[in-house]
Every structure is written in structure tokens, then in C-alpha cells.
Design a protein around this nucleic acid. Structure first.
Lengths: 233, 233
DNA sequence: CAGTGGTCTAGACCACTGG
DNA sequence: CAGTGGTCTAGACCACTGG
């Protein structure tokens, strides 16, 4: 087939939006109006509107109509999402197990990354995140006490460290790296994997306005997780 | 309405996948089979399969059927850069070694990802990329001959496959995943690493306007490479 | 060839919104 | 109330796939 009719309708609508003929918030023709205009059935006109809605170009409300969306959302390069929401989005249950929650002294590499003096007091946590009955992520954090003074008093089985930290001071920056690593016997045991299973390790530093908030190391079994995304050019 | 019928069908399929009754690569019932089983019209059964396909749980191919997709979860996103430019940016020298360049027949998973029929003719290349005197990346590609008819005639020691492909047809989309994996003895030997060294594997599919151009698998030794990025909020 | 998904029609009933 | 989008039907023709 040369071109599907719903595609022709989509392209027509996109042209109107790109050409600024239809602006954000404007009502676009209804399913019935498009069906008449393009001499197609309502189902075909509907498909065009539906797909544009899924692509984020239109917003549709029953009883009201279809409207040009505010602006085309750019796919952010790296997003930070919280593990509990991510698991919930898959319809699975999340459970957090606190393996460690203490004050300790930063060793040299940790202090360097946090911008603190060697041996400075930092808060340290290790939390294991379960998806249903399988460990999915081991989360280890070193937190600058300046930016999370009550960190040690939190119940991280109820609110994840990530959610807690982003709640007390808005994050302004982050950098992260992703590596493939082997893990220690302790970590392998916690994650319930074989010692030689390759793991993904995401290391992330987050900033608030006044400085580096924390250093996180997130370890996922290679067989249970992958990072991914979709790009549009 | 209590629940839409297409939602009930979707939930049924999701249960089968979650319950490991249907595994990655398995064929799921066709539109017609679901229509009979759930006593709905084909359009309604179709909608269930279609939405699951858009959500990434199924992969559909005309004439073949609908199949369970690789189910491991995904998160976040990285950008695409070319290995030779990246090495050059570090002030190092890049060299490419062509290990394989041939026409072959796509096996089932490869065909699925490319949207081709099982056994369809595809172009296949394996190129090893060196940074100074150390192998950094093993690049394996399956290319749809439709979008790169002269692929086998190229000299990939001069122009990388990535640069060649993006030159002949502008890319419009890509999706990619990053995993931690073990590699075969052959791949370990090519990369000059120990058999048990964990590696990063980036799998990328790229689209041009008319369809899926190619499937790339990039493998990096875990000790020599990591992905990273900086975010501003 | 029979089976698959891709597109499309011309109807239908419904829940919801504004006037 | 008339108009909107949400769901659904029972057909149709098509391109494509495997055997």
C-alpha cells in the first residue's frame, strides 16, 4: 500500500502544528469532522488522533475534543527514576530490606568523590530492593551529613533513600557511569546470584544547589536487568 | 464500563508472560484465535495485541505472528556516538579490523528484531575496534539489505559501519539496551581478555524513514570501558 | 495454499462534557 | 440537548509468510 489513510491524516495534522497554524491548546477537528473531510470511516480518523495522542502531540478528553499539546516533549537523555516506582509500573510488588545504616568515616576515594576531607564523617546505607520475591538492586550510598542530617533516622523500608533525599533538597545535577563488574561473595549472596555472574553497576553522584549530596552505587544482576531507551532524531 | 474487553485480554496475556507460561520468543495466540477464545471481534483482540506490542511486551510480524519479547526491564537512556571519533577525542589512534563480512540467513531472534522473515538474507559484519594497541570494542551487525545494498562492498577499515550506514539513509529512531554479559572464548580472545571478565553489551536497533536499518551488538571489556553522562535538572 | 497481521468500513451503544 | 471521545461488531481486501 502506498500510504495508509490514517498516516495521511496524521501528516496533515502534524503539518498544521509544525506550521504554527494550530497552536498549543487549540482544538483540532473531531473524529467525525476528520472522517468527513478525508472521506474515511470514523475508526480510521480515530486512529490518526489516537496515535498522535500516544506520541504526545495531542491531548484528548472525552466529551470535549482533541487539543494540540503544550509542546513536544523531548526524550531526556538520561532520566533518574526511583526503583520502587519502576517496579510498581510493571505491576509488581517492591520491598526494601535495610542491610546497613550507620555513620562511618569516608575513605580516600569516597571523600574525593564527595568533595570532603579524608576520614570525614559520612552516613552510609545499604538497601536491597526486591521485585516480588527476587532481589533486583543492591543500593549502597554515602551521604553528606550536611545535606541529609536526619538520614540515619529514616525507615527506608517505607521511603527509599532516593525519594527521601530528593525530597529534602531539590537536585540540580547528577553524573553517572555504567559499568560491568564482578561482585564480592557477600554481594552475590545478597542478590542471590552465582559469584561469577556479571553485574551492572551504576554509580551516580547528585548535587543540590549547595554541593554534592550523595554518592550511590546501584548493582543489578546482569541476568535480571538492563538499561535502555528509545531515541528520536 | 467495568472493564474493557481488550483490557481483559491484555491482562490474560500479561499473566501468562509473568507466570513464565509463555517465554521470550514464544508465539502467542493470533488475533483470530484470541477473538474466538474471548468471544470478541477480531478488532478487539487485535487492539490487545497491538497495545502490548507498543508497550514492548510483544513483537509482531506480518505473516508470522506475535511473539513474547525479551522481558527484562529497561531504564534510562544514553546517546549515540561513533567509536572512532570518541577515541580520536581522547587523542588516541583508532584502528578497525574486519573479522567477518558476509551475507547470511537471519535466525529467529535476529529476524524478529529486524522485522524480517526467518532465514531472510541479511548482511553480517564483525569489526574489532582498537584504541592504540588494545582492542576496545567488538562490533557485530546485521543489516537489512534493503537499506544498505552495497554494505558488503565497503572497506570498514576506512569508514566504520556506523558512519557508512548513517550516511546512506538518515536515521530517524533508535532503541538500545545495555547489559552485563559473559562472552564466548572466541570473543574473549579477540578482545584479549580473560574468559571470565564481565563485559558491557550495547544492543542497538536503528530506523530510517522506511524501516529497521540494522541491529548492532557492541561488546566492551568491563575493565576498559564504561558508559556515562552528566545531567542538569 | 492456509494463516498471519495491516488497513478499512459502516454501522452501534456508551460515558462524558458543555450549554 | 447535541457533540465528543471510548468501546465494539462483523464483515472486507490486502501483503506477507511458511509449508
Amino acid at each position: 500500500m502506498a500510504q495508509a489513510r490514517y498516516t495521511a491524516i496524521k501528516e496533515h495534522i502534524i503539518r498544521q502544528i509544525d506550521g504554527r497554524h494550530w497552536l498549543a491548546g487549540d482544538r483540532v477537528p473531531s473524529e467525525n469532522e476528520l472522517a468527513v473531510e478525508f472521506a474515511v470511516s470514523r475508526m480510521t480518523a480515530r486512529r490518526a488522533l489516537q496515535e498522535l495522542s500516544e506520541q504526545g502531540l495531542l491531548v484528548r478528553t472525552q466529551g470535549l475534543g482533541s487539543f494540540v499539546a503544550d509542546s513536544r516533549p523531548m526524550s531526556s537523555l538520561l532520566e533518574i527514576n526511583s526503583i520502587d516506582r519502576e517496579i510498581a509500573a510493571r505491576g509488581h510488588s517492591h520491598r526494601a530490606e535495610v542491610l546497613c545504616l550507620e555513620e562511618c568515616h569516608a575513605d580516600h576515594p569516597t571523600a574525593l568523590m564527595l568533595g570532603l576531607a579524608d576520614g570525614a564523617a559520612v552516613y552510609h546505607s545499604i538497601v536491597l530492593h526486591w521485585e516480588n520475591n527476587t532481589p533486583l538492586q543492591r543500593e549502597e550510598r554515602f551521604v553528606n551529613p550536611l545535606f541529609g542530617p536526619d538520614y540515619l533516622k529514616q525507615d527506608f523500608t517505607r521511603v527509599t533513600p532516593s525519594v527521601y533525599l530528593s525530597g529534602i533538597s531539590p537536585l540540580t545535577e547528577a553524573d553517572q557511569t555504567i559499568e560491568a563488574v564482578n561482585v564480592s561473595t557477600e554481594v552475590a549472596a545478597a542478590l542471590q546470584i552465582a559469584q561469577d555472574e556479571p553485574c551492572l553497576q551504576l554509580k551516580r553522584r547528585t548535587w543540590c544547589q549547595r554541593g554534592i549530596v550523595n554518592l550511590a552505587s546501584l548493582v543489578y544482576p546482569g541476568s535480571r536487568y538492563r538499561f535502555g531507551g528509545h531515541l528520536n532524531f
